[in-house]
Design a binder for these strands. Structure first.
Length: 229
DNA sequence: GCGACAG
DNA sequence: ATCTTGTCGC
């Protein structure tokens, strides 16, 4: 397990963090379709915390997109770099996620984040931010609708409806399993919304959440246990 | 002003 | 995120 380094100039206040989002937002690429589902590699990233010691552990798990077999994995531990503030999640999670991605022995391909991308108060969520910093194609798959509204999609797997912020469609509520609560998909960087949903469906042959995030979630929890006496 | 609010 | 056992159902 490698160690997290907090990037130079990492914001220390909410005001500065919002300014960074407003600045980096300009660099998001939204006009690329992204890699075709079922090809190449897909990497799930997730983070776990120990609030007692202000510890954070991130995991990155690389899957073969066709078989969903694990190809590689890496973890990173470090000190928490920012409190949890709705809308500023990226500043809490990204340093650890970057360290885990750096520790991988191979290229990650498409990165699937636990959270949002475009669906964000300033249109620059975790997935967008990670995409801009790494240049990698990214998407966000969240478990909750955050502050957004949506119409309940149809009951079957594959049904989807718009995730709405005012006038804009910022993502999609996507049913990944029959009769189960939808997930909330949004674009991060260099991937279209249709393609992001197709990837999400390809990653959910058995469970509600993408196999990538399930793997990353269990790995970072295990690693946190081992890092905590 | 008050409440809600990804993880 | 995290605290947490058993339990209902395929």
């Amino acid at each position: 397990m490698t160690t997290v380094r907090i990037p130079a100039g990492w914001p220390a206040t909410e005001e500065r963090a919002r300014a960074v989002q407003d600045e980096l937002r300009e660099r998001v690429v939204l006009d690329e379709p992204g890699p075709p589902p079922g090809t190449g590699r897909v990497t799930g990233v997730d983070v776990a915390y120990d609030d007692e010691r202000d510890l954070v552990v991130a995991a990155a798990v690389v899957l073969d997109a066709a078989t969903l077999d694990v190809v590689a994995e890496a973890t990173a531990v470090g000190q928490v770099s920012f409190p949890y503030v709705p809308g500023l999640l990226a500043f809490r999670e990204i340093p650890a996620v970057l360290a885990a991605l750096d520790a991988l022995p191979c290229a990650p391909g498409l990165v699937v984040c636990d959270g949002y991308g475009l669906a964000h108060p300033r249109r620059f969520g975790l997935a967008s931010h990670l995409g801009v910093l790494t240049g990698l194609p990214t998407i966000g798959v969240a478990k909750n609708p955050f502050t957004f509204s949506y119409e309940e999609p149809g009951p079957r797997r594959g049904s989807a409806s718009a995730l709405v912020s005012g006038e804009d469609e910022v993502g999609r509520a996507l049913r990944t399993r029959d009769g189960v609560k939808p997930v909330f998909v949004s674009v991060g960087h260099r991937v279209s919304l249709d393609n992001a949903c197709a990837h999400t469906l390809a990653l959910t042959p058995k469970y509600r959440l993408p196999e990538s995030t399930r793997r990353a979630d269990s790995l970072c929890r295990r690693a946190l246990q081992e890092a905590t006496p």
